[in-house]
Every structure is written in structure tokens, then in C-alpha cells.
Amino acid sequence: MGRLVAERLTAAEEAIRIKMEVQGLSVHYGNTPALSNVNLAVKANHVTALIGPSGCGKTTFLRTLNRMNDLIEGVRVTGRVLLDGEDIYRPGTDVVALRKRVGMVFQRPNPFPMSIYDNVAFGPRIHGLRDRRRLNEIVEKALRDAALWDEVKDRLRSSALGLSGGQQQRLCIARLLAVEPEVVLMDEPTSALDPISMLKIEELIQDLKATYTIVIVTHNMQQAARVSDSTAFFLSGELVEYGPTDVIFTRPRDRRTEDYITGRFG
């Protein structure tokens, strides 16, 4: 429904619309704090990059946005995470439905050991779609949107594990697009890929942001600079600085941000 409302907004309104808003978010693993009091607004149809050293909480933050953290034993989340104004941590939230709206691409390409077609059709099928013609359309569209169609259209029935790493990752993106999420979370999506595959994915991200809201965790500062509109810098579980990417990368306000992005950290 949020989608319908969104479509009625004009382009100008769309540009400043807040898709997800995080308010006073703290996360603990057992007694270890992982995030403390984070406030951050993710703009619709923006690419938001999360950067910071290992263990700074950026991946934890990403995983709170679609409640993938629920899978971890002993995790405690306080604060609010609003998706189109609705708190996704409110008791009674349908987590399965949430994850359909807020999908995730992982660090290592993780296609299922099935055919390319079945990988992409997986999402629509689990959501109850049986019609073969409709499935074919969705699979083709998702693969096209993920810039993979031309490379795999002749071997949709062969195993997805036979693809190269970069193709596998684009397949994972296609698999996600097939369920038509609203927000795409990416956890270091290119860290296991070669530079050319990395650039292809980055190009893809630029294409996708017209339709989706994207949040990406990356260790590659240049990548954050290249693909994102806004950048958030995390350090020791705190959000140190959040702002337009060009500002963060030319004149960050916080000394710690500067030290980190210029590589004078630790």
C-alpha cells in the first residue's frame, strides 16, 4: 500500500521522501553493545552507504533493517525502525512479509544449488505464484534488470553454481528483484569479486536506485564514494557522521571520519 501512495507522489516529493527512519536504535549481543543510540533517515531512491572499520556495527545496523538479526541468539534491539512510518519492531510485525519488502544481498554470492531459472523463480514461487507464463516473465525481467539476461538466457536450466562469481552475485540480485522489494540491503556485495565484476555491480546499483531504495555496507571507500548519495560513518557502534557523500569525501566535519576515510586510522 505504501507503494501505491509513493507512486502518486510527484518526482520532486519522491526525491526527499524518507523510506526508512531509525530512531534511538541500540543493539546488544548478550551484554555486548553493538550499536548505541543511532538515528538515521534513509531517503527513498537514494543509495546510502555505510562505512566504518570492522566491528563498528555497520553490518549489525544493516541487519536490523530487515530483522535478519533475529536469527542470532541473544540479540536485543531497542529503539524504533520505521519503514514508511511503521515500526518494524512493533510486537506482532510479520517478519516474513517485512523481509519481502526489505531484501538483502550478501557478502559472498549465495545462489541456491539449483538452475539459474529456479533461483530467480524461487521468491515468486514461495510467495505462491504458480502460473508458468507469469513466472517466465518475472524471471526474464529480473535477469534483465540485473544485467544478466544476455549472459544466461541460453542456459537458464543449467546450474547457477556454474556461473562466475560476478555473475552469481548479479543472479542473487536478480533473485531478490524477482520478489519486488522496496528496499535492497547490500552487505559488502563486491568484496568477493574481481574489479570488473565489482564495477558491473556498481553500475547496476546506479540503475536500480531509480526503482529501489538501496543501503550498502562497504569496506571500499572508493566504492562508497562512487555509488552512494549519502554516506554514514560508524565507529565503535556509534554513528559518527551522516551526510551527502560528496561532503563526507571532500570535507567531513568530524576528525574521526577524516582519519578513517583518508586511511589514517588505528
Binding site: 535478519m68 536469527l71 516474513v96 523481509r99 519481502k100 531484501g103 550478501f106 541456491f112 531478490l176
Partner: peptide, 9 residues
């Protein structure tokens, strides 16, 4: 994780 992140039960 991939399956759950696609909204599978």
C-alpha cells in the same frame, strides 16, 4: 539466510 531474506518462512 538468502531464503529467509527473500521472505521465505
Amino acid at each position: 539466510e538468502a531464503s529467509l531474506a527473500l521472505g521465505a518462512t
